[in-house]
């Protein structure tokens, strides 16, 4: 306990806090760009899952199953240590962005797919009976409703994505967790180092959790739509 409450150790931490802030910056960049990639992939493969041309849902299925059923750490190690063997070198920052992007893209694809399926088929038929083609049915009828129902699980995914950027620390990715680990290791001040890391992640994630809850509350007020699953957990 004396170690935890040592004033000297905390002073040292505040002195070196710029390292943690640098880590926070990396984490934020990786999280934001990773989220953009995840959203783009998720929407693309989610929509492909519900297309009638058989080959496209198949491709989406392979992507989703592959990235959901292997650990994120393994995927990231592969980009970082495996790809160089075949002559592909990716900067660490990019590894982080691609890592969480591809991984969470698979989860978001599932969220989008179930969001599309949650729109009752009768509405699609009504639109078809009026003469709307597939793309128009998607654009005017299905996706606007999908967006509404998928917002809570999507923010939940964003939160998980932020937490999962901490996998970068394992490949020296200069993120929050990396600086916390190296600072704690160099000084031997583990309480201070990891508590600060936890706090910084909390600051990033807590608002997203609140936002998810708020959106879920709001979604409940719209009747006549089926519920969908809240995007499976996606922690390392």
């Amino acid at each position: 306990m004396t170690k935890l409450f040592s004033i000297r150790r905390w002073m040292q931490l505040f002195g070196d806090f710029d390292q943690f802030l640098a880590g926070m910056r990396t984490t934020l960049i990786v999280a934001l760009l990773g989220l953009l990639i995840a959203l783009a992939l998720g929407i693309l493969f989610g929509v492909l899952s519900s297309v009638k041309i058989k080959i496209l849902p198949w491709i989406a299925r392979i992507y989703v199953e592959f990235f959901q059923n292997t650990p994120l750490v393994v995927q990231v190690f592969f980009y970082s240590f495996g790809l160089p063997f075949i002559g592909v070198r990716i900067p660490d920052l990019m590894v982080g962005i691609l890592g969480v992007g591809l991984y969470h893209g698979a989860y978001i694809a599932e969220v989008v797919r179930s969001g599309i399926e949650a729109v009752p088929k009768g509405q699609v038929e009504a639109a078809e009976s009026q003469g709307f083609g597939h793309i128009q049915v998607m654009g005017y009828i299905v996706l606007p409703q999908t967006l509404k129902i998928t917002l809570p699980p999507l923010t939940n995914q964003a939160m998980n994505l932020v937490k999962n950027t901490s996998v970068l620390a394992m490949i020296a990715g200069m993120d929050i967790m990396y600086y916390a680990k190296s600072w704690a290791g160099n000084n031997g001040f583990f309480y201070q180092g990891y508590l600060s890391a936890g706090l910084l992640y909390f600051i990033l994630c807590f608002p997203l959790t609140k936002l998810t809850a708020w959106l879920e509350q709001k979604a409940k007020q719209v009747p006549s739509q089926k519920k969908i699953n809240n995007g499976m957990e996606a922690d390392v």
């Binding site: 009752p120 509405q123 009504a126 078809e128 009976s129 009026q130």
Partner: peptide
């Protein structure tokens, strides 16, 4: 079929199928 639906026929369903949004 899409062209014909656009120009010739309309349908009313048991479950109404209005666009809720």
């Amino acid at each position: 079929k899409t062209q014909m639906a656009k120009s010739t026929s309309a349908m009313v369903f048991q479950q109404f199928n209005l666009y809720p949004h």
